[in-house]
């Protein structure tokens, strides 16, 4: 049962490709055997006879469908030795259907129940041979039912697998998401994270606009190479730490205006109301600032 859904889909398609050939080969023998079986059933068991004429089973033998070959191919095998072959064949047949039809089963539960109850009765009353004959019928119906929804449920399953894969990736990216179980909680976390990132961008752009206007000139004048050196020189641990800490402790509802007066005296009026930050953020920026002082900043601002 380790097969992934796509493998199973392939397998199914192969089977369906093969099945018409089977049909051609087998059809004549199968028909004869069917007649034999019917006669056998007829003089043996009344209940089964009525079952035979159940409108869903009878006429479908004439229609061209993948399931005919399945049932007929079944019948070929158990003739030789009953127990083992049938078991193996059944395993092979049920493998792809059993898993994918779980949901399907629920839908057709009522019909299945009636069917299975009938089947159980026959099991109790009949000998082994009749149960062997019964089985293809059962599979035949299930295959026909499953046929319509099988691909759908397979596709649905593939889709769900894809989603869960993506969710796992998101779990890796979004910090604090691996503690949450359940899709809803994870989505919550993701939404919060994205919003916090967007707010950070807002905040940072605000901050940049307030910082010394001359700075922008310097940013513009800097060549890409210098920035490259600047980024590589940036200690990885510090930047990571600040990232991790900031998106959490970024309570924008917490009041506390940044002291921009040092930076720009004439623009403070409009700002003090808008800008908020927390003390922990300041601590982290302080720590970053200390690390910056050492080397990278000195060459960044050597242009001044």
């Amino acid at each position: 049962m380790d097969l992934s859904v796509l493998d199973r889909l392939k397998w199914l398609q192969q089977q369906q490709l093969v099945s018409p050939e089977f049909l051609q080969i087998i059809s004549s023998d199968g028909r004869e055997e069917l007649n034999r079986v019917e006669s056998y059933l007829g003089n043996n068991n009344d209940e089964l006879q009525s079952f035979r004429h159940f409108p869903e089973f009878g006429p479908d033998y004439d229609t061209i469908d993948g399931c005919i070959s399945r049932t007929s191919s079944f019948r070929m095998e158990p003739v030789k030795n009953n127990g083992d072959n049938r078991a193996i064949a059944l395993q092979n047949k049920r493998k792809p259907q059993g898993k994918t039809e779980k949901r399907e089963k629920k839908k057709i539960k009522s019909e299945d129940e009636t069917e299975s109850s009938m089947k159980a009765k026959s099991h109790m009353s009949n000998t082994e041979t009749s149960s062997e004959i019964q089985k293809p019928d059962y599979i035949h119906v299930r295959a026909r039912r499953g046929e319509a929804t099988d691909r759908h449920s397979l596709a649905e399953r593939a889709r769900r697998e894809k989603i869960s894969k993506k969710m796992k990736c998101l779990q890796d990216i979004v910090p604090g998401c691996n503690k949450v179980t359940g899709k809803a909680g994870m989505l919550d976390e993701i939404i919060n994270y994205v919003q916090s990132l967007q707010q950070q961008v807002e905040f940072l752009s605000m901050k940049l606009s307030v910082v010394n206007p001359e700075l922008e000139c310097h940013i513009d004048e800097l060549s890409a190479k210098q920035f490259q050196a600047y980024f590589t020189g940036l200690p990885e641990a510090v930047s990571k730490q600040s990232m991790m800490a900031d998106f959490r402790s970024f309570p924008l509802h917490q009041q506390g205006s940044l002291d921009y007066s040092v930076i720009n005296a004439n623009q403070i009026t409009s700002l003090s109301a808008k800008d908020q930050t927390s003390s922990s953020w300041e601590a982290h920026s302080q720590c970053l600032y200390n690390s910056f002082r050492t080397d990278s900043v000195s060459n960044l601002f050597s242009l001044k």
């Binding site: 990132l197 950070q200 961008v201 940072l204 752009s205 901050k207 940049l208 910082v211 010394n212 700075l215 940013i219 600047y230 980024f231 940036l234 930047s239 600040s242 990232m243 900031d246 040092v262 930076i263 920026s285 970053l288 600032y289 910056f292 002082r293 990278s296 900043v297 960044l300 601002f301 001044k304």
Partner: peptide, 17 residues
């Protein structure tokens, strides 16, 4: 955010120096 933050930090550091 990474890029903006590093620039802001650098700028702050520069202005305070």
């Amino acid at each position: 955010v990474n890029v903006m933050r590093s620039i802001v930090d650098a700028a702050e550091a520069g202005t305070e120096q």
